[in-house]
Design a protein around this nucleic acid. Structure first.
Length: 268
DNA sequence: CTAATCACCTGAAGGC
DNA sequence: TGCCTTCAGGTGATTA
């Protein structure tokens, strides 16, 4: 589910909802969902800062940190009452004002890590895709250093963090680059295009509160709006909005990949 | 280093 | 209705 725009939406909401709250305790309803790697007690610690890097959320506490990845179906739902639906709730972060942050995760892939320092988890992640210091030149040099196909490059979180299957396909379509193109064979002009469109797509998706395919919800339980603006993702067989050619779907990097054969040129 | 495949899980959808 | 297969916003380990 959630890629950068969805996680950013949740991060912004959590800053309003839980910043400054004191944690009472954390209950691991499904044992694997909460991975406690620190001996520092959580109880009594205050949420000092809510951050995001790539698809990871980080909650800086007084003395330690919680790092959260929602994977495919994770949701962080803020609750002020106790009569909620417990289905698929895998962990509960309780605050001392009786409110809770519920970790709902149908497929159980998501994780809440408790670590001494958020860097213990985040050190392996590349630069965030909307980090202002990731300018065109740096973007181009990262891509040109890679020999993998561009779709795989965009999905590789250790290079640029936050882009997933939806926004990889959407940005490659806008930039007119075939997803199977080799990263180091794409012309500079096209990479410049890709950088521009990737940023535009991510920022627009944030403005639209993220994309909901099926499971994504924000911390209020609301769906996103950005799925209405997809041009290729999940539009297989439908007309390309640029040229009317039916959208194709193939498997690249082990993922369903949507593109237009006419608008997206292969470089290799 | 890269590429492919499986593993982790549950549920929805489509074919028969 | 039921059974079986395939697929899904992700990533990490393992095997060529």
């Amino acid at each position: 589910m959630p890629e950068l725009p969805e996680v950013e939406t949740v991060a912004r909401e959590l800053r309003v909802l839980i910043l400054g709250k004191t944690i009472q305790d954390i209950e691991a309803v499904w044992y694997k969902s909460f991975d406690n790697q620190s001996s520092i007690p959580i109880s009594g610690q205050v949420i000092k800062k809510v951050g995001r890097k790539g698809k990871y959320l980080s909650l800086q506490l007084t003395r330690s940190a919680l790092v959260i990845h929602l994977r495919m179906t994770g949701q962080l739902l803020y609750s002020t009452h106790f009569d909620y639906d417990n289905t698929h709730i895998r962990a509960k972060i309780r605050f001392n004002d009786t409110t809770e942050l519920l970790f709902k995760d149908t497929r159980k892939f998501g994780r809440i890590y408790h670590v001494n320092d958020a860097g213990d988890i985040l050190y392996k992640i590349g630069m965030d895709a909307i980090d202002p210091t990731l300018d065109v030149d740096l973007f181009k040099s990262l891509v040109k250093k890679s020999s993998v196909n561009i779709k795989s490059f965009l999905l590789a979180q250790n290079k640029i963090a936050g882009v997933g299957n939806i926004y990889a396909d959407e940005s490659l379509h806008r930039a007119g680059i075939h997803p199977a193109s080799l990263s180091n064979k794409i012309p500079d002009v096209k990479l410049r295009n890709l950088h521009t469109h990737l940023l535009d797509i991510l920022h627009t998706a944030i403005e639209n509160m993220g994309s909901t395919i099926s499971d994504y919800r924000d911390s209020y339980g609301n769906v996103g709006n950005n799925q209405r603006f997809f041009r290729v993702y999940q539009r297989t067989g439908e007309a390309c909005l640029n040229c009317s050619m039916p959208i194709s779907k193939v498997r690249i990097a082990g993922r369903g990949t949507h593109f237009c054969v006419k608008c997206q040129k292969v470089y290799n």
